[in-house]
Amino acid sequence: MTLTMFIQHFFNALTLGSLYALIAIGYTMVYGILRLINFAHGDVFMLGAYFIFYTGTIFHLPWIVGVILAIILTSFCGVIVERAAYRPLRDAPRISALISSIGVSFFIENLAIVVFTGIPKPVVRPDWLVKIIQIRGVRILPLAIAVPIMCFVLVAGLLFIVYKTKPGLAMRAISKDIETTRLMGVSVNKIISLTFGLGSALAAAGGIMWALRYPQIQPLMGLIPGLKAFIAAVLGGIGSIQGAVVGGLLLGFIEIMIVAFFPGLSGYKDAFAFILLIVILLIKPTGLMGEKIEEKV
């Protein structure tokens, strides 16, 4: 393999990995607070992609306006999902909420098939993102650079909210002890809504950028990226935002590099992700950066 080819693969991996990371953060945040795997998260991601499609093709909004609108609409959907499907089950056994999330996932997918139809739709991409540029023989799409940068900015913003603001403090507190956090005057419901809103906003950003990279969208497009991002979250250590980022990037690199170095195995690239999940669960169930806290009583 030549160096130029490797660099191209590297950027592909970086793009894919940062998209996984963005989606994985949604899983990890919700798990961190509610100990719930939100299986509908991949479908929320799909909604983000459809919203950007409709703002462009039906309402003819400028692309950047569409992006903002799609993100807002998607986080709103995420908040509604929590309200309708998880909040009533807050005190129920955890398995109930898990089953509810699978139900929501099926519901969103099928509703999407009815509303958006099952026919794949082509997404219009701004020219400046898809005009190939050539640097010293390396042919690269601007979006392969823009996507990782955008992801970095979004993750930095999220980390700022989680570690430097009051709602972020409340989020981190809730993840350990809901009752005590309430006793300190935190409205837990508001913070949980915020968590779903933020997670869904990142998923929407992921969906929009996914649609830039794979410009054909269809109602089940969230299924595989959703599962992969879930694997990334487990790989990095579910509950940890930094872990989700590391897990996402790692998974992206593993996938792309396997195909790059062993083209014969490219048909199995999805299988590798799932094998990785099984191995992680067997060897280190807390993931690479999973939290292990010693508590004094």
Partner: peptide, 15 residues
């Protein structure tokens, strides 16, 4: 809250 610093615990009190 064991994973938060002393300062963060106090600031949570002032939420």
């Amino acid at each position: 809250l064991p994973h938060l610093t002393v300062f963060e615990n106090l600031m949570l009190g002032a939420y």
